[in-house]
Structure formats: structure tokens, C-alpha cells
Nucleic acid binder design. Structure first.
Lengths: 207, 207
DNA sequence: CCACAACTTGCGTGTCACGCATATAGTGCG
DNA sequence: CGCACTATATGCGTGACACGCAAGTTGTGG
């Protein structure tokens, strides 16, 4: 049989992987950003219904397991930009792709807060975000017909985009912020791409 | 006596801190990006002339010790931008500040390669770079007379700048690159700030 | 010169990542 | 359907690590 593009083994693997990372994130949220040390590997494994040794076959650290969802998200970034219509201007394509990728569904505040404001998770979170940069840069290079080997523009823009996403996340998490994440995201990404009318935006500060 | 702005204690602390991080980076470079696991805490401590327990009083992980210099560099970023002349346009001020900060002296290729292309160090390296973002954002906000609480522009720009620095580092490390780091850095940072003449740069791809 | 504070060190503990060997479950073929 | 084969799950053992604690050592300030 054909297992619609995935055999039983791969689906089981995927399922355990998700069970582990989901359990890890849930337990981490329960303990809060200051009690991460209390989340034992044994607990994660038990909550996911696997042995601790198996947990370690999928992830080599708790941080990696907790941030796995963010990493997966980042892996889809390149594809998200590539699937925008070819004629669309770069800025609109990027904004649309990122908003679609990061607001479907609206992210879980507790989860995002966990991975973005826990010092011990900071490195892994940044790693997760930075995973999007390579594919994004390639997609940007393809869209702008640029050579990524010579031109730094695609890579720099990709890094700026992930930076904007992080900033948007931090800002969205601030207490009492009524904006939807899509709105914040759009505001942040707009800062990356210069506005067309020079009378507003950051243009006035430049030489 | 006045210990020119620093106690004996503080100077000793600083000295051991530097001895440890320097030893850690040196040993890491000796083993190369693939042999990081062979760099034991005991070796670092011995090379620095302290006990393993003391090493742990200064750094809570090998990665932190190895990347300490990058982190220190990032901590100086805000000050570097603030010390530019007040009237200078933002883009020129940023470019000058960053180039001065990151090319005095010209960085050690082996060290930079170690912290930027070793998977186990990636998170800590990104953390080190991101440390510059907060102070940078504040300096940008001050220079552009912007409210960092409402406007995302300072934070997004700061993130874009650190992203550009990372991209410049990666590009500079590529084999057979004859450019000075200052040149690469300038090229990367130029991508962050829109060129004044719309006929070149990325403007053509925008709406 | 002395009392106090900061720093260093040794020891013990709990946790972790991972190699290795074994058991189990999915796969593809005759 | 049954059988060899491979991938995955698990148990166990090992080496390393981070860190709390308490004692010893070194700078500080009166």
C-alpha cells in the first residue's frame, strides 16, 4: 500500500516526535520560565508515553524538544515565500507569507512567551528562528534574480526578516497589548522594507 | 590609592575571567569544530590556571566561556553607536560604529569560524550577537528621537544590524575571500539601509 | 592591625547525553 | 502467508557536567 506519501514507520516517528515535543512544551509552560530546571527528562518521556532513552533518540536536549515547534515553523518559511505569486513585489510577498505562516493559527501566548523569555531557552529559540534564514535567503534570491554567492542582499534581508519576527513576538507578548499578532507582524516587517513615500518612515534619518 | 577605576579584586576577577574564556576558545580552536566534545572542563580550567569549580563560578557552560568574547563585543555595541557625532545620519553612524567595533583589531578567522560554524556553539553565538540588540535599539531610538515602546523601528533595525553582522561574518569566512572584514561588513550593512538613489539596491523589487 | 567581605577550592549529589546490546515492530519479497 | 531484513524502542552502564555547601584564602576598609 501507499500510506499517502508516508509509511507507517515515518508516521509513527513523526507522531512520537510530536508527542515528545508537545509534552516538553506543556510541562515547561506548567513550571513557568523560572522553573525549567524542574522539568526532568523522565517527566517529559513519561508524559509522552516513551522511555527516557527514546526521548534522547529524538532530541539531544530539553531545550531542543521544547523549541521543536518553532524550528518546524522556520523550516516552512522558504516554502511559504516561494508559494507566493511570482509577480508580487518582494515586500508584499514576504509580509503575506510570514503572516500566513505565523498566524495560522494565532500562536499560543504561553508557548511563545516560554520559548522567547526563558534565558535557558534563548539560545535554542534563536537557533530555531535562524533556521529560516537559509531557505528564506534562497527564496529571496530566486524572486529577485540575485546571485546569493556574490550579493549579500538576500541573506541580509532574510536575517532582517527573522529579526523582525522576533521583535514582533516580543512586542506582542508585552502585557496589555490588544493587537493581533498579524498586525504586530505587519508593523515590524514594514520597518524592514523602506516605505515607498520618502516623507514617512525611517528615510528621514538617512543620508 | 585609586586603582584607576577598578579594585584589585575586580581586576583579578576580570583577569581570571579572560584567562578562562581565552583558554576555552584556544582549546576549542585546537580541536576544531568537530572535536568540541573533547574539550573538557578540566582542561579549560587547568589551562587557565584555576580549579574546575572556579571555572564554573564564571561560566555555566563551555559554550558560554568560548563565546564570552563575542558577548563582550556585543555589550559595547550600544556605546559604540552613541559615541558617534550627534548630527551624523543614522546609516553612516551605524556603519562607522559597527566597523570600528568589529575591526579593531581585524577578527581572528579561526575564532570567528569556531563560534559561527560549530553547531553546538550556534545557540550561544546567536545569544551573544543578540545581546547587542537591546542597547543598539535604545541608541537608535535616542538618535532618531523615537519612542521604543510604541515604534518597532528601533528594535527591528537593531535586529537587522546584528543579522547583517552575522551574514558578513559568514561571508567573510568563506574560503578564498580576499575582502577585509570592514569591506564585507560595509557591504552587508548597506543592504540594511535603503540606498538614497532608487535606481540601485533593492528598491526595484518593492511595490 | 583587625574584622569583614569576596573569591577560590574540594567534595558530594542529582541530572544528563550517549554508546552498546537487545527486544520489538514495520517492510518487502518469494 | 511467512520469512529475512531493517528501523525503531528500550534497558543498562559510563563519563561528564552544573551546582549547592562549607572551609580555606586573599583583598578591603576602618
Amino acid at each position: 500500500m501507499n500510506d499517502d506519501a508516508m509509511n507507517l514507520r515515518a508516521r509513527n516517528s513523526q507522531a512520537t516526535r510530536e508527542a515528545i515535543s508537545h509534552a516538553a512544551l506543556r510541562l515547561a509552560i506548567e513550571q513557568g520560565p523560572n522553573g525549567l530546571a524542574l522539568v526532568r527528562v523522565h517527566d517529559i518521556a513519561t508524559a509522552a508515553g516513551v522511555s527516557p532513552r527514546t526521548y534522547n533518540n529524538y532530541f539531544s536536549s530539553r531545550a531542543e524538544a521544547i523549541c521543536a515547534f518553532q524550528a518546524d515553523q522556520s523550516r516552512r518559511a522558504g516554502q511559504a515565500l516561494r508559494s507566493r505569486p511570482a509577480g508580487e513585489p518582494l515586500d508584499q510577498a514576504v509580509i503575506a507569507a510570514v503572516i500566513e505562516l505565523y498566524t495560522d493559527p494565532e500562536p499560543d501566548r504561553a508557548g511563545l512567551r516560554m520559548i522567547m523569555s526563558t534565558p535557558e531557552l534563548e539560545g535554542e529559540a534563536l537557533k530555531a528562528f535562524s533556521m529560516a534564514e537559509g531557505p528564506l535567503a534562497e527564496a529571496i534570491a530566486a524572486r529577485t534574480d540575485t546571485d546569493p554567492q556574490r550579493d549579500l542582499f538576500p541573506a541580509v534581508t532574510a536575517a532582517a526578516i527573522t529579526g523582525a519576527i522576533r521583535v514582533a513576538g516580543r512586542h506582542w507578548l508585552e502585557p496589555g497589548n490588544p493587537e493581533s499578532f498579524a498586525t504586530t507582524l505587519r508593523r515590524a516587517l514594514t520597518c524592514v522594507f523602506p516605505a515607498e513615500s520618502p516623507k514617512e518612515g525611517k528615510q528621514q534619518f538617512l543620508s
